[in-house]
């Protein structure tokens, strides 16, 4: 079940969370980029479509709400915030270790914002030298 919070507020919270996650993740040493992918582009499109055609309607409220940034997709479902992150890492840092750090960081920030973390999936899309 979704929370009782109206969709519009939820999306607003998610938006703020997505922005702060993006800037905080980018400060992590070894993370070169959050990689935009076709997946995050399509999600972005779908969300804006839902928002524009069904503002605040019951139908929209029953759908899971999703917010995307480059390389970052946040979805609320079952009262939890699920995150999928696509990353490019610097070869001077251990890629798997960095991915685990990012997972933990994302989970902490979701909790800090008063929400419950769900699945936090990380995909390493590139490992690059400088």
């Amino acid at each position: 079940m979704m929370s009782d919070q109206p969709l519009v507020d939820q999306v607003a919270d998610l938006d703020a969370l997505a922005d702060s996650l993006t800037s905080e993740l980018m400060e992590q040493p070894g993370l070169l980029r959050l990689e935009p992918t076709v997946k995050s582009m399509i999600r972005k499109f779908k969300v804006s479509l839902v928002a524009s055609t069904q503002p605040g309607s019951r139908a929209a409220a029953s759908a899971p709400s999703t917010v995307t940034r480059d390389g970052l997709v946040l979805t609320v479902a079952d009262d939890r915030v699920h995150v999928s992150a696509d990353i490019a890492t610097d070869v001077e840092h251990r890629a798997l270790g960095l991915a685990e750090q990012l997972q933990a960081l994302i989970a902490r920030r979701i909790q800090d914002s008063g929400l419950a973390p769900g699945e936090i999936d990380i995909t390493i899309l590139a490992i690059e030298g400088q």
Partner: peptide, 9 residues
């Protein structure tokens, strides 16, 4: 991990 999956392309 307990938090989710980590994959590599």
């Amino acid at each position: 991990t307990s938090l989710g999956a980590i994959e590599i392309s």
